[in-house]
């Protein structure tokens, strides 16, 4: 059995009176590619964002690679680790956003070397060498001196993936990485993600790309109204969904 990289225990999250996550239990193992599907507002993105402190949970426990990074009991913070430690653990999770969120005032190369240099204090020469390697991997080496505004959406998202990989993360989180893209640009981003999955990267992907979920993921969870309703292999969930709401969701999107 490989290591458990992500563990959620009885995680709840509310915004005011709105319950976004209800009693979520989830484990993701090393090398696993998990996709989270479900209607909008079902809590998928919040679940992803609570893994790296972009959202703080209301109750429950979040453990990343054996390190507790969030724990609340009755809304009270039980976390005993320093901000620095949490930031360090969170930097082991790379995140790719729906709207790319590249730094517009930096060139492609500067975007990629920024965090390794600022956070990890890597030397510039080393950061640049690794950045070029990553840009080759996502097929954008020739764009290294462009500003993000000069790139297509697909290219920007590939740069964003390279930027996240520059921190040598153990886990990659994708929050609807292709939802803001023109249809003809989706393929290039999914290809990069497939390559990553092949290399054995642990990935959690919130997606509307059922094709990707089917083809690449080991496991799919279906969420609705803040709960995990169904969890199984892609073959199982797409051909033989058990839950009524899963069925009706899949009918709409497939």
């Amino acid at each position: 059995m490989s290591n458990v990289m992500i563990k959620l225990e009885k995680v709840c999250k509310s915004f005011g009176s709105l319950e976004v996550l209800r009693n979520i239990d989830l484990e993701v193992r090393q090398g696993e590619v998990l996709s989270i599907i479900g209607p909008s507002g079902s809590g998928k993105s919040t679940l992803l964002r609570s893994l790296n402190h972009l959202e703080r949970i209301t109750s429950g426990r979040v453990t990343i690679d054996g390190e507790l990074i969030d724990e609340k009991v009755d809304g009270k913070d039980q976390l005993k680790v320093s901000h620095k430690k949490v930031a360090q653990i969170c930097s082991e999770l790379g995140m790719v956003f729906q709207r790319f969120n590249l730094f517009p005032h930096m060139t492609v190369l500067e975007n990629i070397i920024e965090a390794p240099m600022t956070v990890k204090k890597v030397s510039k020469a080393e950061a640049v060498a690794f950045a070029i390697e990553l840009l080759k991997k996502v097929g954008l080496e020739d764009k290294k001196n462009e500003y993000p505004s000069r790139l297509s959406g697909g290219q920007q998202q590939r740069v964003a993936i390279a930027r996240a990989l520059a921190m040598k993360p153990k886990i990659m989180l994708f929050d609807e990485p292709t939802s803001a893209l023109d249809p003809e640009l989706v393929g290039e981003v999914l290809q990069v993600m497939k390559d990553l999955a092949k290399e054995g990267m642990t990935m959690v992907v919130v997606t509307h790309e059922m094709g990707f979920a089917k083809e690449v993921c080991n496991r799919v969870i279906f969420m609705d109204k803040g709960e995990i309703l169904e969890e199984s292999s892609p073959e199982e969930i797409f051909s033989n969904p058990k839950h009524e709401r899963t069925k009706s969701f899949l009918q709409k999107v497939l």
């Binding site: 402190h53 930031a87 730094f103």
Partner: peptide
């Protein structure tokens, strides 16, 4: 855009680093 601070934090930057390197320059 709020996404800028989120991206900086997701990369492991502290609030101060994110302000100095990402938000204020923009």
């Amino acid at each position: 855009d709020k996404g800028q601070m989120e991206a900086a934090k997701a990369l492991g930057m502290s609030y101060g680093q994110a302000m100095r390197r990402v938000i204020v320059p923009q």
